[in-house]
């Protein structure tokens, strides 16, 4: 448990800020699921206008009109607005209370990304879902999730106590962090490939599993088959890297990391199971959407593990101070 004692006075705010970032991460995961539902139910264009909803202000669109595909598209937009709002609050809160400049900047970056993401969402509606825009929207969504997860991890009291002095120096000397970087990178690539597959309707280009078109390696001339197969091969690569990561983490004698690595390993197994189920259920809406959301969870967990691995063993010297608030606290010091 974090040593709250030394940060007396600022500890309360610290924990609140961290909890708020965790809340935002959870809300974002829900939003990814809601977005996945829009794609899976093919209701992306059930609301033809944006930023209005059938001419209404989106916040006053009557509940009685939530029918058919609109139920998915409109609720996705509302949850997105909520997440946007929480992001504004987090950025402002960080600006006022966070001592590390890069963390404050990351807060503003999150806000910039969520705004860009909202615009991309609108654009995809106005342009009738061109695959390139939909893929960008899918990838930026999880990029945003990564930023929020990072904020949640680095604002945690536990990380504050043990933050490395220099990320780059720590990274070079830390095999666990490097493994985690590989895992995170491969999962991000998997997301990109998955999104391309999803939005070029190649999800069932290989309809069988574990074989691919009855073979170990299917003929790869057709793009849909090729992109789908890349997704499967990369899943194997991810499983391998995460397998090594789990083994090393368990041997590292850092129980927190070992536990997190087991969570990551389990999530990867679940995710591969969901991927197989997606194919075998011929893209059942809930299974497929769960695969999208669990993909985000795998990504976020790999990233958290990487950041956690860079955190040093507890050393008091590493403590990061909270930023004394500009007016209120300065007055209290006088």
């Amino acid at each position: 448990m974090p040593d709250r004692g030394f940060a007396a006075g600022t500890g309360a705010t610290n924990v609140g800020l961290h909890r708020f970032a965790v809340l935002l991460a959870a809300a974002t995961l829900l939003l990814v699921f809601a977005g996945g539902l829009v794609t899976s139910t093919e209701s992306g264009l059930s609301v033809p206008d944006w930023p209005t909803t059938y001419g209404y202000n989106m916040f006053t669109f009557p509940l009685s009109k939530w029918v058919g595909g609109i139920r998915f598209e409109h609720s996705h937009r509302l949850i997105a607005s909520m997440v946007g709002l929480l992001t504004i609050v987090l950025a402002v809160w960080l600006q006022r209370r966070e001592g590390r400049r890069w963390v404050r900047r990351l807060g503003w970056a999150a806000l910039a990304i969520v705004i860009a993401q909202g615009l991309l969402g609108g654009l995809t509606v106005l342009l009738f879902l061109p695959p390139a825009v939909s893929v960008a929207h899918a990838c930026l969504a999880q990029t945003f999730f990564c930023v929020v997860v990072t904020l949640a991890v680095v604002t945690s009291p536990r990380f504050r106590d043990r933050a490395p002095r220099s990320f780059s120096a720590t990274f070079g000397a830390n095999p666990l962090a490097r493994l985690a970087a590989w895992a995170t990178g491969l999962v991000y690539l998997q997301l990109l490939v998955g999104a391309i597959m999803r939005h070029t309707k190649a999800g069932l280009a290989i309809p069988d599993f574990p074989l691919a078109l009855g073979r170990v390696v299917p003929p790869l001339d057709a793009f849909p088959v090729a992109i789908h197969f890349v997704h499967r091969v990369n899943a194997v690569a991810i499983a391998a890297v995460v397998g090594v990561l789990v083994a090393r983490a368990i041997r590292s004698r850092r129980p927190g990391l070992a536990r997190l690595s087991l969570v990551l390993g389990a999530l990867v197994l679940v995710q591969i199971g969901l991927g197989a189920a997606t194919v075998l259920s011929r893209k059942d809406v809930l299974v497929t959407t769960a695969h999208v959301a669990c993909g985000a969870l795998v990504l976020g967990t790999a990233l958290s593990f990487g950041i956690g691995a860079m955190a040093a063993e507890r050393r008091r010297g590493n403590v990061i101070p909270m930023r004394p608030s500009l007016s209120g606290r300065a007055a209290a010091w006088k």
């Binding site: 930023p51 209005t52 209404y56 202000n57 989106m58 916040f59 006053t60 669109f61 607005s81 709002l85």
Partner: peptide
């Protein structure tokens, strides 16, 4: 911000 967002989201019902 809330208010301006709501306004941005377009011209009232």
């Amino acid at each position: 911000t809330l208010t301006s967002l709501a306004l941005l989201a377009c011209g009232g019902k």
